[in-house]
């Protein structure tokens, strides 16, 4: 290594060191520590702090509340991500041909996405109000959306779709704008109809963006907390309690830091598994291309 390279190396370390130290302390450190914490029995208020091995995981394996939360998380994630992708893609396609109000449309979509999750929860809590909620008034029914076991989860999914569908629409729309008109003209010359054009031209060109959005949205849905915590609080009767809400309750309401961390670790592993699956799909696509 020449003196010049050594100097560059030293300078580079100087530039990244503050960020790396901060990340190690605030992000990587806690991310590793939580695994250790999940192997401990730790209840600060009673001064309990000792090794527990895999006791928490063994308990969770047969814990009906855990499996219920797991199922709710899975249903919530699959349902909201699927609806968001379909609606978002549809809206992006519609907006591409739109001649009036495109700017206002983008502003409106961004607004729904940019609001704090707690605000969204409050908006929908009021819309779902049994007596004075706009949803019941508009439909002419008297349903208790957030209190009815059959309706609470769909109501929650709908609120999440309202909040995050714009993210999908925006990404797809931006990609659509970059497809040159010549591509469509060529398809028309070849006699491709609307369906064929969509199937063989638009969709393949959109695929990379759809894949990225699918990843982002799945990760966010698995990690989601604020919307359900405030809107339903996991109710009625735990039917909308996700893994994140169960973890939070265990950590800070029953103050079992070790046990709650074990649920946190499971969310962590799920998220990383989804990200890894996505990366392998991406590699395969690149290898095929």
């Amino acid at each position: 290594m020449t003196a010049r390279e050594r100097a560059e190396r030293r300078a580079a370390i100087g530039f990244v060191a503050p960020a790396v130290v901060t990340l190690a302390a605030l992000t990587a450190g806690p991310a590793l520590w939580v695994f250790w914490l999940s192997l401990r029995q730790r209840v600060p208020v009673f001064g309990i702090d000792h090794f527990a091995g895999i006791a928490h995981y063994a308990f969770l394996a047969t814990d009906p509340r855990f499996w219920s939360a797991f199922r709710v998380t899975a249903v919530f994630t699959v349902a909201s991500v699927a609806l968001e992708l379909l609606l978002g893609l549809g809206l992006a396609l519609a907006l591409r041909g739109q001649r009036v109000g495109r700017r206002a449309a983008l502003a409106l979509l961004l607004l729904a996405w940019a609001l704090p999750g707690v605000v969204t929860a409050r908006l929908f809590e009021w819309l779902y109000h049994p007596a004075a909620g706009l949803v019941n008034v508009a439909l002419g029914v008297a349903l208790n959306w957030l209190g009815d076991p059959a309706l609470a989860l769909p109501a929650l999914v709908l609120a999440d779709v309202w909040r995050t569908m714009p993210f999908v629409a925006l990404f797809c729309y931006a990609r659509l704008l970059t497809i040159p008109a010549a591509v469509y003209e060529a398809a028309a010359v070849d006699g491709a109809g609307r369906a064929a054009t969509f199937r063989f031209v638009t969709l393949p060109l959109l695929a990379p963006v759809l894949l990225v959005t699918l990843l982002f949205r799945t990760l966010d849905a698995l990690r989601a907390f604020d919307l359900m915590f405030v809107l339903t609080g996991g109710g009625p009767a735990g039917l909308t309690e996700t893994l994140t809400v169960y973890a939070y309750r265990s950590l800070f309401q029953t103050l079992r830091l070790g046990f709650g961390s074990a649920i946190g670790v499971i969310v962590f592993v799920l998220v990383m598994a989804v990200a890894a699956a996505y990366l392998s799909v991406l590699r395969r696509r690149e290898a095929a291309a």
């Binding site: 990340l23 990587a28 806690p30 939580v34 990690r223 830091l257 649920i263 969310v267 962590f268």
Partner: peptide, 21 residues
């Protein structure tokens, strides 16, 4: 890779160590 991966870390997993910190 670590930087990109850490943008995906769920807050519910890091909240308990951060609480102790």
């Amino acid at each position: 890779l670590g930087v990109v991966a850490s943008t995906a870390f769920p807050q519910i997993a890091t909240v308990s160590p951060l609480y102790l910190v």
